[in-house]
Amino acid sequence: MRAGSEPVARIRHGFRRVTGRLPQEDEIEMLEKHYRRWRDEYRDNPAVALQLLAVGEAPRDPTLDAAELAAWTSVASVLLNLDETISKE
């Protein structure tokens, strides 16, 4: 989230970190759509966002907006599970 203030900058940053290349336009589009869907859901249900953020050992950064952080967690989960992230063709 600190990699940029715009969603696209964040997506480009995350995608590059895990795959070693920049995402193409349609890939950015899919991930941005994904982000917006989850941001809306967690904004509407802040308690659910907090539940998700309580999972895991690392404490969450309280200076970051919870709904935003939860939505980007979902994007990160997709990025980390890409075939391209896991195996090199």
């Binding site: 899919m30 991930l31 759509k33 997709v78 890409l82 391209e84």
Partner: peptide, 8 residues
């Protein structure tokens, strides 16, 4: 979403 990206 994951499937769309992996499919591509």
């Amino acid at each position: 979403t994951l499937q769309q990206l992996n499919r591509k």
